[in-house]
Design a protein around this nucleic acid. Structure first.
Lengths: 189, 189
DNA sequence: GTGATTTATTGACTATTGTCAATCTTTTTA
DNA sequence: TAAAAAGATTGACAATAGTCAATAAATCAC
């Protein structure tokens, strides 16, 4: 099994040799170029991705051509177009690789099989889900209670790496503001 | 066991008599008056609530006295100040009963014990969590991609009951807008 | 490396939403 | 039921953020 995946599991569950083999077989490796689209809007999200290296962006497109970043997935994190993956229905969001990325991917069936077959696996998934849900709650709070500048300041404090690594236009649509407004915030503050 | 709770479980898991007794013992019944505070900001959320009748509001308060509704929990739904409940740390949000409410409550320890002891219970919880997470993702999308009027229109389409049942000021801070703006949206559209 | 493309900044103007205040309506409660 | 409290509406104005356009800077591809 790939050491990055191993690292996610160790300390949470201990696997037998056969279990480790089972897990290892479920995850397929994949590379993605910068800018490459992994899931197009309208298709079903068949895979949950694990980012070994690089960064994925889950984003929304509107008819006027505007784009909005729903989530960013960095190293050592899992992610996908979650509603589509869970419900196996067409996704309103697309997934794009923001950098040359090294990924592992698992389909829904296999993900469910592992939860059924490996004791503790579902618990591990649930705990991850709890963390993701908490992060999304905090994002909602920041969107309803703070203005653009405050949201940007918090992002700088909590995720400085994100700001250095991604173009400002992506930061802007992640924060729910325009690129121009973000540019002005950066100089004003 | 109370029929409303029973209804949540039936079709998902079948419980033995002892298991049913175990579940039943974990849930304590509670009434709450309209306006009553169930959790104050700064305290740890000890309970996950199930709403049999009525409505709970999980909300944030800022120093200037403004309030913002993080979540609303209606009949046949579970909810609490989730980050605090999961991490057992002081809550930034408070919980208030918006109507005379009939509730069941379970503490974190018992909730975890049921997941450990009853086969299928954790799966049921995980599926509920997935749904809540999806709902929160959709709320984020609506906050970053839509303006106030569009958000209000969608809320009217998807949750008309919510709008009839709660005061406009609550609808407004749930949507992340001021009461005055909401009032103007209602007459303009 | 150099041209081409993408990204960032800045100005001018507009649109949306917020704030404050006054008034009106509804609901609660004694 | 009447007084009080809470909620809703409206106007005037301010502030925040968006849009369009031009230019500058950075990055990419060959």
């Amino acid at each position: 099994m790939h050491p990055a995946l191993q690292k996610q599991i160790e300390g949470k569950i201990s696997l037998s040799a056969e279990q480790e083999q089972l897990v290892s077989n479920c995850y397929k490796s994949r590379q993605a170029k910068k800018g490459e689209i992994l899931l197009e809007k309208g298709n079903v999200a068949r895979y949950l991705y694990f980012v070994v290296k690089g960064c994925l962006r889950v984003f929304l497109t509107k008819d006027d051509g505007s784009e909005w970043t729903r989530f960013l997935i960095f190293e050592d994190h899992f992610g996908t177009a979650f509603p589509s993956f869970v419900q196996q229905k067409p996704s309103v969001a697309a997934i794009q690789s923001m950098e040359p990325s090294e990924l592992f991917m698992i389909n829904r069936q296999d993900a469910q099989m592992l939860m059924k077959e490996i004791p503790g696996w579902e618990t591990m998934m649930r705990l991850g889900l709890e963390q993701d849900y908490i992060a999304s709650i905090e994002r909602i709070e920041s969107l309803i209670t703070l203005d653009a500048k405050e949201r940007y300041n918090i992002l700088m404090q909590t995720q400085p790496g994100l700001i250095q690594r991604l173009p400002g236009k992506i930061i802007a649509d992640y924060l729910g503001i325009s690129q121009e407004t973000l540019s002005r915030l950066k100089s004003k503050k």
